[in-house]
């Protein structure tokens, strides 16, 4: 493992994109940063600008209106960027897949590196998913 890769893995900055979600995944993602789970001990930070991001967390079903935004955000991100689809809606569309506004799960719109299923996934599951993603690449 090269020096570059090592630094990248040790300092993942996360940008959070909530699609048409029910908010649960969003809260659980924030929950990962709070005292009980504290992702900062792995160097993971939540950043406010996509320009600073290394990981794009996408949750919620993507509707027709979000679709363009998601593409735009993905294109604005400095590469390399990892995309993680969180929750049943992000992975497959979940209960909203039958909805007439549904524009496809995340992987139909942008390439996805990891899926973390669950409705919502527990913070432990989110951390485990990200750790697996980091170890793989």
């Amino acid at each position: 493992m090269g020096f570059k890769d090592y630094c990248f893995k040790k300092s993942l900055w996360v940008f959070h994109f909530g699609g048409a979600s029910c908010n649960n995944c969003d809260i659980e993602i924030l929950d990962c940063l709070t005292p009980r789970h504290d992702l900062e001990r792995f160097g993971i930070l939540l950043v406010g600008s996509i320009r600073h991001a290394d990981v794009l967390l996408v949750n919620g079903s993507i509707n027709t209106r979000d679709k363009d935004r998601l593409l735009e955000i993905y294109n604005q991100a400095p590469k390399p960027i990892l995309v993680v689809a969180i929750g049943a809606c992000g992975c497959t569309g979940g209960i909203f897949a039958e909805s007439i506004t549904f524009a496809g799960p995340v992987d139909k719109i942008i390439p996805v590196n990891a899926y973390i299923p669950g409705c919502p996934p527990k913070p432990e599951a989110i951390i485990a998913g990200i750790v697996k993603l980091v170890n793989k690449s």
């Binding site: 699609g19 048409a20 979600s21 919620g60 079903s61 509707n63 209106r65 979000d66 935004r69 209960i95 909203f96 039958e98 909805s99 007439i100 506004t101 549904f102």
Partner: peptide
């Protein structure tokens, strides 16, 4: 608005 609509009222009818 509209970034979050999932047409739940319509889904509910099915």
């Amino acid at each position: 608005t509209g970034y979050n609509h999932r047409s739940i009222e319509k889904l509910s009818e099915s």
